[in-house]
Structure formats: C-alpha cells, structure tokens
Nucleic acid binder design. Structure first.
Lengths: 106, 106
DNA sequence: TGGCGATTTGGCGATATTGCCAAATAGGAG
DNA sequence: CTCCTATTTGGCAATATCGCCAAATCGCCA
C-alpha cells in the first residue's frame, strides 16, 4: 500500500471512526431532525454533560456537525446530511444478517 | 435513550466500527474490484498475515464480506457492495473540509 | 461586578483495539 | 505418511477509547 493510498484511507477512516459509536450515532440521527443544544442532547442521551460534549467535539472535529453559540447555549446541527443515506446501507447489512440467521434455523 | 434504541444503535455502531480502520477500508475497496485470497491481500497490504487474517475476520463477522475455501486458499469477496456508496458520502465530507480550509486561507 | 447556568477541558481508571510473534490447524503434493 | 504452504488462533505489549469527576471558561443578568 503506497503512502498516498495510506493517507487517503487514514482520512476516510478518521471520519468513519467518528460515527462508530452508539451515542454519536444517536446524536447524528437526532440532529438530522433539527438542531439541538448540548443540554437538550444530554437529557436525551442520559450521560454526563462532559461525555456528551466530548462526543460532539469528535463529530465537529471531522466536519460532520457544526456548532453555533447563541445566548448561553451552544446549538449543534448536522452539516453533512448525506451520512443519513450512509446509514441505510448499514441497515441493509443488518437485515441481510438477520435473514442469513433465519435460513440457518429453517 | 431507551433500550430498544440502544440495541439498534449498538448493532449499527458495530458494523460501522468494522470499517473504521484504514487497512479494512483498503480490503473493502480491493474486494470491490474482485475477490482475493488472504495471501494476495497480505502482499498488497504489506502487514503480517495474521494481522490481515484478523482484519478479514472482523469484516466477515459483521457480514460485510464472505469467505470461500478453494484448494488450499481462502478467497474473500465483498458481500455488501452498498458500502461503496456509503464511502462516497465520506469523500464528500473530506472535500467539504478541504474547501472550508481554503476559505480560511483566502 | 459577582454569581449562575451552560459548556469545555484535564485527568484518571477501566476497557478495547492493534499488530506482531509463535503455535495450532488444514489441505495438497510428493 | 511427511513436508510444505495457506490460514487461523492465542497471547502479549503498546496504544487508543470511554465515561466519569473536578476544575476551568464563558456569557448573562441582577
């Protein structure tokens, strides 16, 4: 694997890794509906605020979401809605696995 | 976040996590062209055979690739080609980030 | 200006991932 | 049967991730 390919795949993996966590998937799905501030997301997720804040910064770092400070709150929004289409393939994989399981039982 | 959502997102994250590694991205992209045996992939990647074998088992475990033993070799193939479309969004994110950088310099 | 609510950052222990080596396993060729 | 090649598995050290607490920031508002 040459260096150029390595760098390209490193960049790609960094972005995918940012989504490879249940809480961060929840954040992306939730922001797909509409923007939310950190406190709202924290309430929905049910984890420590600092934990949620770190998840948000991971997603922002790779450019998937955007933040905007308004008043005393920080509002996050989905910057790259295409990731939602991205997920439909994952659901396809899950469905295919389930059908494979069924076939074994039958 | 209720238990049902938690389980759904765990399953989704598991699959995405399987792709969140440069070497495994390389494997998926390579298999998208056509099937390869472990030895061929190992040569292309340039890592230890055992390392490549483990990466392959991670991808197989979540149902993204399939294996078939023929002769003394094991051939792997892409089972879920939709992941390639999945990647185009990631490229979009990378491009958007680059353009954002440019805007800052200008 | 002092204090309050919202958010981020530092740090720590627990856990997970990664990549190599060595050893086990599985088939095929001689 | 025995050697050889291809692959997988076990184990280990290095590194990264995760989630909480505590502390630092940052705006507002009285």
């Amino acid at each position: 694997m040459d260096t150029k390919t390595q760098n390209r795949l490193d960049a790609k993996a960094r972005i995918i890794k940012a989504m490879a966590h249940p809480t961060r998937l929840f954040i992306v799905e939730t922001l797909a509906k509409h923007e939310h501030c950190v406190c709202e997301l924290t309430a929905l997720i049910g984890a420590d605020v600092s934990t949620v804040s770190k998840h948000l910064s991971i997603l922002r770092e790779v450019g998937i979401i955007d933040d905007e400070k308004r008043g005393s709150s920080v509002y996050y929004q989905l910057k790259m809605p295409c990731v939602m289409g991205f997920f439909s393939c994952v659901d396809t994989v899950i469905k295919a696995n389930a059908q494979g399981q069924l076939k074994c039982i039958r």
